[in-house]
Amino acid sequence: MAPADPFSLDLTWTQVSPRLAAARLTVAAAWLVPLLVVAVLPPVLSGIAWLWVLPAVVVLLALWLLWLVPRQVGALRYAERDDDLLIRRGIMFRSLVVVPYGRMQFVDVKAGPIDRAMGIARVQLHTASPSSDAWIAGLPPAEAARLRERLASRGEARLAGL
């Protein structure tokens, strides 16, 4: 990344588990593979050569995702400060969210079947604002539990109404 990354704020950022990329790619495969099968059928059945463009597009999409998703997951990081939690996301469209512990109304920890198989969980922070889009996916369950406890205890200590 750029030598002076303005989004880093000179903090030590924790990356999420690379297993998140595996989980996301699994989900992508779950619809890409049937799509590929459907795309292969027309050229095979009709024998028209240019129809191979269809499966080629699907394969290209798959390759693109294979390249993109690990990068996206690599860009998802978080940092805990004394009073707030910072979450960074995105490569093209970058964002950095700062959530003060005292503003948190509740914390969700979620894990779907694929997440559980991969051993990851997703922590979502809710403030009174619907626009604070603060979540961290791809946390190992132990880390998710630790983070939840920490957020809850810090939030309680600093809770300041609305």
Binding site: F7, M92, F93, R94, S95, L96, V97, V98, V99, P100, R103, T127, A128, S129, S131, S132, D133, A134
Partner: peptide, 8 residues
């Protein structure tokens, strides 16, 4: 409530 920095 919270703050965000965004850049496209």
């Amino acid at each position: 409530q919270s703050l965000a920095l965004e850049q496209g």
